[in-house]
Simulated assay, not measured.
Amino acid sequence: MEIKCPHCGQRNRAPARKLDSIVSCGKCHRPLLSSPVVADSPVLTELISDSAIPVLVDFWAPWCGPCRAFAPIFENEATRQNGSIVFAKVDTELHQDLGQRFNIRSIPTLAAFFRGKELFRKSGALPPTELEKIVNQLKELA
C-alpha cells in the first residue's frame, strides 16, 4: 500500500504487515505514522487484514460538525502515539462503499481492528481522555 508522508508529501510503499518496523519516509526520513493515514478501500482492506499493529479507524464526513470537532483530537493522539498503532481516517461521503461495508450508521464512528478482526466500535466524538484509554487498550494487544 502507499502512504503519503504527512511532512513532505512523498508517496511511500509500505506493506501493512511491516508497519511495526517501517515507520519513516524514504525522502525526508520523518515518521510516516505521525498523523492519520487517509484510507480508501484498498488501503483500508490491507491495513485491516495485514497490519502488524492495531488499527484505529475514524469513519467521518466533512459535513458533520461532531466529526470536524473530533478531528484535531484524533490527529493529536496519532501524533502523540507516533506509530505505536495505525490511525486511519475514512471519509464516508467520498467512500460510501466503505460506510456500507462496515455498516456505519452514525458518524463519527471509531472502529478498532487487529489481525483481520474488528475488536470494537464506538460512535460519537470522544474527549481526549477517552480516546487515550482506547489507544492504551489497543497498544496492550500489540
Rank of each mutant, 00 (worst) to 15 (best):
T79V: 01
N136Y: 07
L98I: 10
Q100L: 10
E2C: 00
P66A: 05
S123W: 01
V38Y: 08
L94I: 09
V57N: 00
D50H: 13
V55C: 10
A111G: 02
F120N: 12
A125I: 02
P42F: 06
A125R: 00
A61C: 04
R105K: 14
T109G: 09
D97K: 13
T79G: 13
S34W: 00
F87D: 01
P54D: 05
R13E: 13
E46A: 14
H29T: 09
L33H: 03
S34H: 08
P15W: 09
N82G: 05
R17P: 00
C67W: 00
L33F: 15
R115F: 01
F74Q: 07
L33R: 01
V57I: 10
G9M: 03
A88C: 08
P31C: 02
D97P: 04
C8T: 11
A88G: 07
L98Y: 05
E93K: 13
S41F: 06
A52T: 09
G124C: 08
R11M: 14
P42C: 08
I48P: 00
R13H: 13
N103C: 06
P127C: 06
S123T: 15
A88M: 04
I104W: 02
A112W: 01
D50Q: 15
D40P: 04
N103P: 01
E75I: 02
A16W: 02
I22K: 08
T79I: 00
A111Q: 10
L98S: 07
A125W: 01
V43A: 12
G124A: 07
D40C: 07
M1Y: 09
N76K: 15
L19Y: 10
F120V: 05
W63L: 04
C28L: 09
C64L: 06
R68T: 02
R105V: 11
L119C: 13
N82R: 14
R101I: 00
K27R: 14
A78C: 10
A111N: 02
G26K: 04
A78D: 09
D40F: 04
S24G: 01
F87C: 08
K122G: 05
L119V: 11
A125S: 12
F114Q: 10
P42G: 11
I107H: 03
F70H: 05
L131N: 07
L110V: 12
N76V: 00
E2I: 11
C25T: 08
T45S: 13
A61F: 02
G65Y: 01
A52S: 15
P42Q: 09
A112D: 06
P128M: 08
G116Y: 11
P127N: 14
S106K: 12
W63P: 01
Q81P: 01
P62A: 09
L44P: 01
Q96P: 00
P72W: 07
